[in-house]
């Protein structure tokens, strides 16, 4: 194996994130071994990505165990009730700001500024 092939091999696992240095590109175009090596990593990544579509059924014990643990929780989690209030205040402030901006724009338009 040529020294350049060894260098290509050292880069090959990460070629999905970073392209090969340009000085190696010319070598790869003429080296079947390096092309095959890069192709293996492409295949590997495709196979790994394909695993995302495969789902393994959970054992029947998972949901009941979670239900038991959750039922033993003394205080259920209650979402922060201030948030809807704060959201309402923010929305009202936004509406006032928009109305003010609109009024200013109309006044400027009527004065021929815009």
């Amino acid at each position: 194996m040529k020294a350049t092939c060894m260098v290509v091999r050292s880069f090959a696992p990460s070629t999905a994130e970073a392209s090969l240095p340009s000085r190696l590109g010319g070598h790869v175009r003429t080296c079947l071994a390096c092309q095959a090596e890069l192709s293996r990593y492409s295949k590997l990544r495709r196979r790994l990505a394909a695993m995302a579509d495969i789902v393994e059924p959970a054992p029947g014990s998972v949901a009941p165990a979670v239900a038991d643990a959750v039922s033993e929780t003394e205080e259920p989690p209650v979402r922060d009730r201030r948030m809807p209030h704060l959201a309402g205040v923010a929305a009202a402030a936004g509406a006032i700001a928009a109305a003010t901006a609109g009024a200013v724009a109309i006044r400027r338009q009527s004065r021929g500024i815009i």
């Binding site: 495969i54 789902v55 393994e56 059924p57 959970a58 054992p59 998972v62 949901a63 979670v66 239900a67 959750v70 039922s71 259920p76």
Partner: peptide, 17 residues
């Protein structure tokens, strides 16, 4: 809790996987 159990039922396979 029942709503949470439903979330568990829906997502348990992907979580386990």
């Amino acid at each position: 809790r029942a709503a949470f159990s439903e979330l568990v039922r829906i997502h348990q396979d992907e979580v386990y996987t």
